[in-house]
Nucleic acid binder design. Structure first.
Length: 783
DNA sequence: CTAGGGTTAG
């Protein structure tokens, strides 16, 4: 309450809403109402309907005005009317509207002249959003002459407002003879639920003109509206009023304030308000939990959830779902299981929302078996969202094959495919990467007219990029009407990954011209292009301009990229200097490219130094020993080599999710994949050594790259073993070349592979070979 | 006539 207690006086003083009797805002003119895009002609249909009813019961409809007092002659009509017959006709009309099940709504015993009944029916329509039936009842209201009655008219306003026909609501409201706070509330609430905050505020301010005082209903409505549209100033002002008028004691008003602050992300205000509530209920607790959850303060959300239970409040489906998701997000396995168990016990686990949340939790915990099992148990309840969650889970957990299988199964089960599905499936294609599958999905996307979705389009660009089909990627990009930063980044990245430095830069310039501000990812792509093309000077300039010209703060990944840029090009001292000047403490990831550079440029002394820095930070990194042992081999220090090999074998290879499999001579080997810095098991290294004699792999970068750690494996459509792929992003397309000569020293594939036409050739005319020349010239084996 | 609210994608 601190905020309120101290500030409301100040706020109230100059609030435009401060006095309800003072009218600073002009009341809404008809012109203004028209400006909202409101149609006033909707009632025509009702007359038609009314005429239809009238014809059938053979009475004339005398009234033409909608909202005027009932006159004597109309009363006469009512007296003559066979209301049972009208009831029957309404029943038929409802059926014609396709309304079958309206339990308790229409029955013969009703007295249709009973005002309360009609109001009940109208509020039923409001709740259900049933405009068609609502209009029929409006017709009945006119027929029976109830229009003009304040309560009936208010019910009509409410009905139209809730059913989304706000123009008709305004029309009825305007025609009302006397207006009270309830009619205003209905209309304001209608504006807010139709996302017309300004109009709601206008009418709220207008109440004062008629000397109608807003009540606690009004404040609840308005406060909730402020929360939805992020109207912070108005919200705080309303809070001040509420304090002044002592409405806070009302639980509903307090809860709406609480929710509003949660939506604003002002959790401190929300918490203090929450603490001050004398009577908390489930809504109050849910608001706080949901607020924390939305702020991604998952631990706090979970804590709040436990507190809620401690205070004896029974969690419902919603609170349980948020608790579940929180467990997934912060990897709380045990609590996750416990919550799942509770949901099963309560019989909620197979509901669509909760069930999906369970699937999602297990994918976040990396337990894909459980996720799949949960989906199976949901059976036909499983929605597209549930399937999407599963597929996304497989993609995140690097099981691409399973992701595509799940996608296939989803199709077989006639689950409707949506944009999320496309995006996920395409992501799987790019990790594979499989051009043919990407194309198939693209066809599907076109058939479903989903190309306009930015997520889908970006995924397509990425997939084509990863599959090496840059023309397709560009075509997809060109078809986007308003590309956003992500779509731009996808295209820049695609060109960058394939070594098209100039193209990446020209795209970068183009996006700036078109008013899209480059992001961290954009710079990462451009810097990476510089690094792979050996363009040290250009890279340095881009790095400088990041912060200076585009105010993008460099992150660890950018630093890695810069170290890589220096190291690849042999500027090892510059790399070291760069690391030492960093504003952050250098991480292992920042040191690693320098170690690779030392290996490639044969600087053993610096290599040892860097290796020690990495091992200080990540003592279990076996790959450091691999590199060192190779460097000792190069200089003939076999004793040191053996030592490193021993150390390497001693160190446990981390057991992380994300493997690839490779089949060689009917035996399956398991590899870590997806992370180029992951060390493989010693068994894998042995295998790779054997394979090196049979298969040569090339990527767009191997020709340029640092070479021959032989530790990287990518899962392509066929087997792929990569050499020299340090710092290559996961999923970079690779092709397999058989019997290609490589540089005997650094295993760099040689330029003349482009002559081997029967295999797919990745080398392009404008491809740069800076590194290749340096590396292989220095080893003297330049053919 | 009023307050709360969960799951998926670039």
């Amino acid at each position: 309450m601190n905020l309120m207690a101290t500030t409301w006086k100040m706020i109230v003083g100059n609030s435009p809403l401060c006095s309800f009797a003072c009218n600073k805002k002009e009341p809404l003119e008809p012109q203004r109402i028209k400006k909202f895009g409101i149609e006033h002609l909707r009632f025509r249909n009702d007359f038609k309907l009314l005429d239809k009813i009238a014809q059938r019961i053979n009475v004339s409809v005398s009234g033409s005005g909608m909202t005027r007092p009932v006159n004597g002659s109309e009363m006469g009509v009512i007296e003559d009317t066979d209301f049972e017959l009208i009831g029957g006709i309404i029943y038929d009309a409802c059926k014609e509207q396709g309304v079958n099940a309206m339990p308790g709504l229409l029955c013969w015993e009703w007295n249709l002249t009973d005002k309360k009944n009609i109001v009940d029916q109208l509020s039923y329509c409001s709740r259900e959003g049933n405009l068609g039936v609502g209009k029929i009842f409006h017709a009945l209201v006119i027929k029976t002459g109830f229009c003009g009655d304040k309560i009936v008219d208010t019910a009509l306003v409410n009905m139209y407002a809730k059913c989304g026909e706000i123009g008709s609501a305004v029309k009825v409201f305007d025609g009302m003879l006397s207006i009270d706070v309830a009619s205003y509330n209905c209309l304001i609430s209608g504006f807010l639920s139709n996302e017309m905050f300004d109009e709601a505020l206008g009418f709220f301010a207008q109440m004062g003109v008629w000397e109608i005082r807003p009540n606690h209903y009004t404040f609840s409505i308005m406060i909730s509206g402020c929360g939805s549209v992020f109207a912070i100033n108005e919200g705080i002002q309303l809070h001040a009023h509420v304090v002044k008028l002592q409405h806070v004691v009302n639980g509903v008003v307090a809860n709406s304030l609480l929710t509003m602050y949660c939506k604003f992300g002002m959790m401190e205000n929300a918490q203090s308000l929450f603490q001050s509530l004398p009577k908390k209920n489930v809504v109050s607790w849910t608001a706080i939990i949901s607020g924390l959850y939305q702020q991604r303060a998952l631990e706090k959300a979970l804590l709040q959830f436990y507190l809620m239970r401690q205070h004896g409040f029974e969690p419902n489906e919603y609170t349980l779902t948020m608790a579940l998701s929180s467990c997934g997000g912060i990897k709380q396995f045990d609590n996750g299981y416990a919550l799942h168990a509770q949901l099963v016990k309560k019989g909620m686990a197979s509901g669509a929302f909760v069930g999906t949340a369970i699937v999602d939790m297990y994918t976040e915990l990396g337990q894909m078996d459980n996720a799949e099992k949960q989906l199976q148990e949901m059976g036909t309840i499983a929605s597209a969202v549930s399937w999407n969650a599963l597929i996304a889970g497989f993609v995140h957990n690097n099981n691409i094959e399973a992701a595509l299988k799940a996608f296939h199964k989803m199709v077989l089960n006639y689950v409707p495919i949506d944009e999320y599905t496309f995006s996920n499936a395409l992501k799987a294609c790019s990790s594979f990467p499989s051009l043919s599958t990407s194309r198939q999905i693209h066809c599907w996307v076109i058939k479903a007219s989903s190309e306009r979705n930015l997520h889908v389009a970006s995924s397509l660009i990425e997939a084509y990029g990863k599959c090496g089909s840059l023309d397709d990627a560009e075509k997809v990009f060109d078809q986007i009407s308003m590309p956003d930063i992500v779509s731009w980044n996808c295209l820049v990245k695609a060109y960058s990954q394939h070594g098209y430095f100039e193209k990446a830069v020209s795209l970068f310039k183009k996006m700036v011209v078109e008013g899209v501000k480059p992001s961290g990812s954009t710079f990462l792509a451009v810097l990476s292009a510089c690094s792979h093309c050996g363009l040290v000077q250009e890279g340095k300039e881009f790095f400088k301009s990041m912060l200076m010209n585009y105010s993008v703060i460099p992150e660890e990944t950018h630093y890695c990229c810069m170290v890589d840029l220096f190291s690849r090009s042999g500027h090892l001292e510059d790399a070291l200097d760069f690391i030492k000047r960093l504003p952050i403490k250098p991480t292992a990831s920042i040191w690693r490219p320098l170690l690779a550079g030392c290996r490639c440029h044969c600087d053993l002394q610096l290599g040892e130094y860097v290796a020690n820095r990495i091992l200080e930070l990540e003592p279990d990194d076996a790959s450091v020993h691999v590199t060192l042992s190779n460097m000792y081999f190069d200089v003939g220090r076999l004793g040191d080599l053996v030592k490193q090999r021993e150390l390497m074998k001693l160190k446990e290879v981390k057991k992380e999710p994300g493997y690839s499999w490779i089949e060689v001579k009917n035996k399956t080997y398991k590899f870590f994949s997806g992370d180029t810095t992951h060390p493989q098991t010693p068994e894998v290294y042995d295998l790779l050594e054997k394979l090196i004699n049979d298969i040569r792999i090339s990527t767009p970068h191997t020709e340029l790259g640092l070479c021959n750690e032989g530790k990287l494996l990518y899962h392509s459509e066929k087997l792929a073993v990569c050499f020299g792929l340090l710092n290559l992003p996961a999923g970079t397309p690779i092709r397999i070349f058989k019997n290609i000569r490589v540089c005997s020293d650094c295993h760099t594939t040689m330029k003349h592979i482009s002559k081997i036409t029967k295999h797919e050739i990745l080398l392009r005319d404008n491809y740069r070979f800076h590194h290749f020349k340096q590396g292989c010239c220095s080893c003297g084996d330049f053919w």
